[in-house]
Design a protein around this nucleic acid. Structure first.
Lengths: 218, 218
DNA sequence: GTCTATAGATTGATAGAC
DNA sequence: GTCTATCAATCTATAGAC
């Protein structure tokens, strides 16, 4: 009965702690995404997860520590998606799978994407080291893969960096600018629209680098 | 001697007022871009333009009013660039010019782009009406133009919306994510890199919709 | 118009009862 | 572990001398 709400099948003490931390992180992700780090308040996060403000400081010593954990969680998800860029597969397969996975992430993790965008836009004060280590390494290996495709004549010669930025920008736009898209669309995108947008993005980029973007005939 | 600093050839009283307002708006744009609306403080903006905090409230009654003027100024620049999308020109010409202009804007107005991105990401609390009127109208006319191109068989049949979002996303990414790009690039992009990136973006998108993106031969 | 000083409200963080 | 009450710092905005 230590837990106020019947918060799921509360197991061990450690499991309960993990569950509460997850609730706070979920609420914090939304509030940070909608207000930015500076605009977000601990009170707003507390209200969003139905806990007293003091409890947040019990689980996360400071607002900045809480924010850091939110960003780190997002970066982990981003990295998992990055692995869908298979270095052994053919260009069509690797790129189509990677773009599709990124579009899916934009749909399922809109708030996480916004927090990441906000963090980078403000100069990455918290995750600068991630940019310089993990992201830089990942990017360089993918650039090498794309260079091999070019050398093998599989795709047109384009600087791999501008191609990667285009993929990141386009897919993440559907999360970060979801509000603008929904205004222009007179409502949220339907399942069919998400599928169509994904196919169109894949099609333009694949054809754009000299592949047969469509799935049938030339 | 009313002006503390010898702020340019001070002309009439109205001109001096305009000059001071512009200084404040310039400083505010940078601070809002780097800290977000919530994270920005009037003190930081005052320091950035070398004026006492109280003077900001003399020229702009509140922080929100100042922010609104910053965003409105950016939207005006955005609209001027939007006009470079000529509805009478051939698809290659219209799109290449529009994309190039947007890339140029990302380079010259990094902070403005960030403020706009932040505003939209947070649900456009200040400029919602712009999205529903000016932006929606502009977008619909361009969608009609692209549809005509498709009907005439000039470009492949792609939903014009996903194409426009790709152009917006990719070009604005170079401003909004400039910090990340510069980390991966080990420094700011050179003139040559900006030109190359612009050409690559134009090339991929034009070829992607069935045009000969390159300038020479098939 | 410009500046100093300060009011009034809000915030991150903590103390201490339970 | 959870909650109420509160402190100390900070912020927007303004009053009033110059």
């Amino acid at each position: 009965m230590a837990q106020t709400e019947g918060a799921e099948k509360a197991g061990t003490r450690a499991e309960m702690r993990e569950e509460t931390e997850r609730q706070i992180l979920d609420a914090a992700e939304v509030v940070f995404a909608e207000a930015g780090f500076g605009g977000a308040t601990m009170q707003a996060i507390a209200d969003a997860c139905g806990l007293p403000k003091a409890n947040l400081h019990y689980y996360f010593s400071s607002k900045e520590k809480l924010y850091r954990q939110v960003v780190e969680r997002i970066f982990t998800i981003w990295l998992e998606a990055a692995d869908s860029f298979e270095t052994e597969a053919a260009p069509e397969v690797a790129l189509r799978r990677y773009i599709s996975r990124k579009m899916q992430l934009s749909r399922e993790h809109r708030y996480g994407s916004k927090v990441w965008a906000s963090e980078v836009m403000h100069g990455a004060p918290i995750v600068q080291d991630y940019l310089e280590t993990t992201l830089r390494t990942w990017t360089e290996t993918r650039i090498a893969v794309i260079r091999r495709w070019i050398d093998a004549g599989a795709i047109r010669p384009v600087d791999p960096r501008w191609l990667l930025y285009m993929i990141w920008a386009t897919t993440q736009h559907y999360a970060d600018f979801a509000h603008q898209i929904e205004v222009l669309n007179h409502g949220a995108l339907s399942d069919a629209q998400w599928t169509e947008a994904t196919d169109t993005v894949c099609g333009i980029i694949l054809r754009g680098i000299g592949l047969n973007g469509g799935r049938t005939g030339p």
